[in-house]
């Protein structure tokens, strides 16, 4: 899966939680919590959505790595490549 495909999935999940983001500019390095007012349930819904689309496990200790768009893409890319090797 390419970075672009991962990004599309992540953006789609973000918009499903915060519909007002549709078509809006997203700062890739800013924390979701600060940028979209995400709370723990928003984040949980987001993480479950990504987990279901990409079929990978996301341990709770890794949640902080997924707190921004850039972080998410980097983390998910590395997760997908390790899962593929296993």
């Amino acid at each position: 899966m390419t970075q672009g495909e991962i990004k599309d999935i992540v953006l789609k999940e973000l918009v499903s939680i915060a519909p007002e983001l549709e078509g809006e500019e997203i700062d890739p390095d800013l924390d979701f919590r600060d940028q979209f007012d995400f709370d723990s349930i928003d984040f949980l819904n987001f993480a479950i959505g990504v987990h279901e689309k990409l079929e990978i496990d996301i341990p709770e200790v890794d949640y902080p790595k997924m707190s921004s768009l850039t972080g998410c893409i980097a983390y998910l890319e590395s997760r997908l490549s390790t899962t593929a090797k296993e």
């Binding site: 723990s40 949980l44 993480a47 479950i48 987990h51 496990d57 996301i58 341990p59 709770e60």
Partner: peptide, 13 residues
């Protein structure tokens, strides 16, 4: 939570 799938994890609230 470390032992649970993501869909069964609990928030501290």
């Amino acid at each position: 939570n470390a032992e649970r799938p993501i869909t069964e994890r609990m928030v501290y609230a």
